[in-house]
């Protein structure tokens, strides 16, 4: 442990720094003295079964849950989130959704530019209700990226999409990440997704990080390659869904 006691929520020196984060609602701790550093520009995937504390960690980093007094949470600002659901405001056009909360004279131009980056220039003035699931999630990505985030939180943003759209979204996210290089934390329960995208993969269990592996394979990654499959098996085993007889879940 780092020794810092005071609660801090301000610009970290480059990367994200979390120390001694404990969250307890009733019963056992949901997050248990969690320490985590994310380097600037690093793409980290966080795996964990339901109830492992993924959501609580993400909510705390997003500023939606309070930081306890004895914890340190120093994050590169601004923090932007793409949620599991797109959560677009249905009464605002796609463009206004992306521009939400932006200030400055160039806000509109920046929003349009972000939408161009996710390939939605032709949907600028569409109502969210007319978008497909993939389009809506791309708008949500544009809304997060337009803020030039220091830390980008991705909360299972592809979980609700069909398999093909999900693969396209993976490519898009990688492309955007390479261009903007925010420190990125992708929360997911999809091991393949984690191995395909991240530099570093964490497994959360009972509120603690029980596995922290680097993944330096060059991108784009071949999902059939031996090292891909080896890492995948290792992670599945750690998550307790893989035995020698095969996959249980």
């Amino acid at each position: 442990m780092d020794g810092s006691i005071s609660p801090i929520l301000l610009d970290g020196p480059g990367g994200a720094r979390i120390r001694n984060l404990t969250r307890r609602f009733q019963g056992p701790a949901v997050l248990d003295r969690l320490d985590l550093d994310i380097q600037p520009g690093q793409f980290v995937a966080l795996l964990g079964a339901s109830g492992s504390g993924k959501t609580t960690l993400l909510r705390t980093l997003a500023g939606l849950d309070p930081v306890p007094d004895d914890a340190v949470v120093a994050l590169p600002q601004p923090v932007a989130v793409a949620f599991q659901q797109p959560l677009l405001l249905p009464w605002k056009t796609v463009h206004s959704n992306v521009a939400l909360g932006l200030t400055g004279a160039d806000a509109n131009a920046r929003a349009a530019e972000a939408l161009a980056e996710v390939g939605l220039t032709h949907r600028l003035h569409a109502w969210p209700a007319t978008l497909s699931g993939g389009e809506a999630q791309r708008v949500a990505l544009a809304r997060a990226l337009v803020r030039a985030p220091g830390l980008l939180l991705l909360d299972e943003p592809f979980a609700a999409l069909d398999a093909l759209t999900r693969l396209r979204m993976h490519a898009l996210v990688l492309d955007l990440w390479r261009r903007h290089r925010p420190a990125t934390l992708l929360v997911t329960h999809d091991v393949d997704e984690a191995v395909a995208l991240a530099d570093r993969i964490l497994v959360l269990e009972h509120g603690r990080i029980v596995l922290d592996v680097a993944n330096h394979a060059p991108r784009p990654r071949d999902r059939g390659a031996v090292e891909f499959l080896t890492l995948r098996t290792r992670l599945l085993e750690r998550l307790g869904v893989y035995s020698h007889e095969g996959v249980f879940a």
Partner: peptide, 20 residues
Amino acid sequence: RLVEMGRVFGLDRRGLIGHV
């Protein structure tokens, strides 16, 4: 969840009331 989204994207109380 829309209110939470608004908070994450930096809307203050007035902004939340007006936009959301």
